[in-house]
């Protein structure tokens, strides 16, 4: 299988502190890859590099066999990598369509004014693709459930037609029902052949939706294998075992 995204020798240092060392990773189109590890394992640093929030101090990123270097998150987004952060994904008091088109609003001629109707219609369409039914696109996101908010954040990635969607702890702080909704969203993204990188501490979520799990420890990749046949307990043990 050819890789959509390839990382070679990725390293990240903050002064004397090394967060990532020589990380190699290949992710194929349409895969759901879980990125796991204990606190301080290097997950956040790797996500920031992929999101364009920071540049690696070593190594190369290949996207579709092309060497890439992301200037900023917007650059990564333009190149097809969207990142949905745990707490910072949405502007709570803004409406659904305002959040979906945050930073990339549509305008209409001749005066270049906002095309609110079209953005609302498109937002409804994106939500429909995720099987999320919300009647009013003017609803402020703060009135939505946690699962619906994640859906809105995913819609922003769909609006950019992102090929790779990075979800940073999407089920953290969510209840059982809302977690199930979010996992269902990931399955739908998978069904649409989107590539998902799921950063999670919830091993049961990883087992439920991921094709493959990558475990980081001390800034190094220590495990990279299919999830099939593993239980949440197995994954937790793998992280703990390596940590011991």
């Amino acid at each position: 299988m050819t890789s959509l995204l390839s990382l070679r020798g990725i390293g990240m240092s903050y002064g004397a502190v090394t967060a990532l060392r020589d990380v190699n990773l290949d992710i194929a189109a349409g895969e759901v890859v879980a990125l796991c590890g204990d606190n301080g394992a290097g997950k956040s640093s790797l996500v920031k590099i992929l999101a364009g929030a920071q540049a690696p101090t070593a190594g190369t990123i290949m996207l579709d066999d092309t060497n890439e270097r992301f200037r900023d998150p917007q650059d990564a987004l333009r190149k097809g990598i969207a990142t949905i952060y745990q707490d910072l994904a949405v502007a709570p008091r803004l409406s659904i369509w305002q959040n979906v088109f945050l930073g990339s609003e549509l305008t209409r001629p001749p005066f270049g004014l906002l095309d609110k109707r079209r953005m609302a219609e498109m937002s409804r369409g994106f939500l429909a693709r995720l099987a999320v039914d919300i009647a009013d696109m003017e609803t402020p996101v703060e009135r939505l459930s946690g699962g619906q908010r994640q859906a809105v954040a995913i819609c922003r990635a769909l609006r950019w037609d992102a090929r790779i969607i990075i979800m940073d702890e999407p089920t953290a702080a969510l209840g059982v029902k809302e977690t199930a909704q979010v996992l269902d969203l990931i399955r739908r993204l998978h069904a649409e052949k989107h590539t998902v990188i799921l950063v999670s501490h919830a091993m049961q979520d990883v087992v439920a939706v991921a094709d493959r799990v990558v475990i980081l420890r001390g800034g190094r990749k220590v495990e990279d294998r299919p999830v099939a046949g593993l239980t949440a307990g197995d994954l937790a043990a793998m992280i703990m075992q390596r940590a011991a």
Binding site: D72, P73, Q74, T83, Y85, V90, A91, L102, S104
Partner: peptide
């Protein structure tokens, strides 16, 4: 939402 806006470019 300053940070969300910044992350959105």
């Amino acid at each position: 939402a300053d940070e969300a806006a910044r992350l959105a470019g």
